[in-house]
Design a protein around this nucleic acid. Sequence first.
DNA 1: TATAAGATTTATACTAAATCTAAATATAAA
DNA 2: TTTATATTTAGATTTAGTATAAATCTTATA
Lengths: 130, 130
Amino acid sequence: MNKINLTAQRKAVLEAVQYDDGHPTAAEVMERLREQGQQFAYATVYNSLKYLTDVGLLRELKLGEAASRYDARVDDHHHIVCKQCGRVDEVLSPTPDEWITAVEKATNYKVSNSHVVFEGVCGTCAQHKV
Amino acid sequence: MNKINLTAQRKAVLEAVQYDDGHPTAAEVMERLREQGQQFAYATVYNSLKYLTDVGLLRELKLGEAASRYDARVDDHHHIVCKQCGRVDEVLSPTPDEWITAVEKATNYKVSNSHVVFEGVCGTCAQHKV
DNA sequence: TATAAGATTTATACTAAATCTAAATATAAA
DNA sequence: TTTATATTTAGATTTAGTATAAATCTTATA
């Protein structure tokens, strides 16, 4: 029974992700902490993000950019990225089971999970017609 | 009307991806070229991969690893990664339209494309029970 | 309380993937 | 040919992240 050891640094990193409205990168977490006057070593932020991901309090997202993003929502879900402004939103609708079954049949894999990155234009950008 | 300018280097890079049975990374393309006695500058391989992707002869895949992989199959499709051996296979079954419509409704985005990374265990690994 | 064991943080060095720069070379156009 | 444009090259640089080892903090126990 591994207890989660939330040190001050880890707590601050966790909260920085939780209270970010988007899905911040490690660099953005650093920046946010600095704004709050909580400056930790570079490695501490990375270590904390890794630890929090390992214990299941955060989820690491690799959306095709160079840097990983972190999500305080850890339930299984997908993401949608706006091609214009770059914002990332949650997609809570799960991958249809029938589709997964079809893919398993076609590929001869046993699928354990899937992650979808949708791309498109968000409502705000569609209005502002950038 | 932009004609595609296939220099010797670009052609060699394209063929290295085409004749690779997997989805090679830039480093793997380099290696394969070296094996063939065709050694180009690091930047040339990257430039070529970029050019070939831009003109639509290759597709860049970001599957959550550090390095991008390249796919000579440029039609819209998904990928499945074996958690055990790391092999990457094509998933040709398209994202169900009804699901995309549901996601658009739920997120208020206009979806232009989607890419799914399935994870699981391939037939070979399932047999060998690693 | 003192002390030792273990975990965490920190600064710094390092690595991997990719891009940038500017000179050199090749190709095409006038 | 001469000039213009594009491509390749070597090497420096950038970015994201990891490794290392000393320093610090916690916890457990005598």
